[in-house]
Amino acid sequence: MAFLFKRNPKTPQDIVRALNDSVLKLDVNSDNNKKYQDECARLLAQVKVVLHGDDENDPQPDQISHLAQEVYATDCLYTLIANLKKLSFDSRKDVLILFSTLLRRQIAGKSPTVDYLITQRPEIIAMLIKGPESQETGLICGQILRDCIKFEVINKYVISSPLFWNFFKYVHLPVFEIATDSFTTLHDSLTIHKKLVSEFLANNYDVFTTQINKLIQSNNYVTKRQSVRLLSELVLQRQNQAFLNKYFDDSTNLKIIMFLLSDKSKNLQLEGFHIFKFFVAKPKKSQKVLDILAKNKENFIEFFNAFDIHSFNDVNLADERDYILMEIQKLPEIERIS
């Protein structure tokens, strides 16, 4: 790539400006579209050389700095994300590389890109959240967004946005990889920054529980399994205490988890068990939860005696089951009116 510089010595600023110009010329209906796509691809390749060097040249910090400044000054990231779909298939991945490299770049412990995104162009984050709505660019946006939410301020922005709840729709999208990618983003945004999430869950208990319960009751096996897995991860977090107290007192949740125990899939049964055990083990149970547990005492005993724990390679599982079984046996007998 070095020959490009020799023949065509462009400064990083030149490259960024030229890139902005070319992207804005992209138009699917134009005959010249292919030409500008190629031009964008070529310029993005040059951007990559500035950022990462090539065989002959190592990246130069001052060049990177010039490039970054120009990117912020010209709103280049905004232009690129807004027109992502118009870029060629391979160029879109170069946008990902540019975005992620700039995000990671830190000056005095702070990422200037994060500041730029939050203070100047939060629209970019909104566009990224809506990424899964496009089949062509959904995966690229998903990857960029996950790189973004590694920074707590952006994570906070994302989960505070009303758009965040869209992810609970996106995970149902028919294109498998977009749906699972959305799930990964949903998962990351609720697991990386623990303190942030604990506040979020406490403040949004009702909406969140309704949404996650919907996912758990989905007909799609993958959605079901991923959402139960996410829930058990959240349940295991001590910081989420406020959320947990509400969640395990709610008999609706218990019913949904009991459905999982009776699912045909062994893995869903197991995932269900890992949540169910907290309902039983909780020291102070709500009356409603206690009623349901007691009413189904015999069923539970029967179920746990047949619960096939040997097919899972988990040494603690037998102990846990025995403990839960013991707790269930301690439940009061209920007189049945038959």
């Binding site: 991945k93 990857q143 990889e177 699972t180 990618d181 990964t184 993958v222 897995r229």
Partner: peptide, 13 residues
């Protein structure tokens, strides 16, 4: 599942 997703992502790209 996460491992599988990662690989599908790579091949789809």
């Amino acid at each position: 599942l996460f491992e599988i997703n990662k690989e599908i992502q790579i091949i789809s790209e």
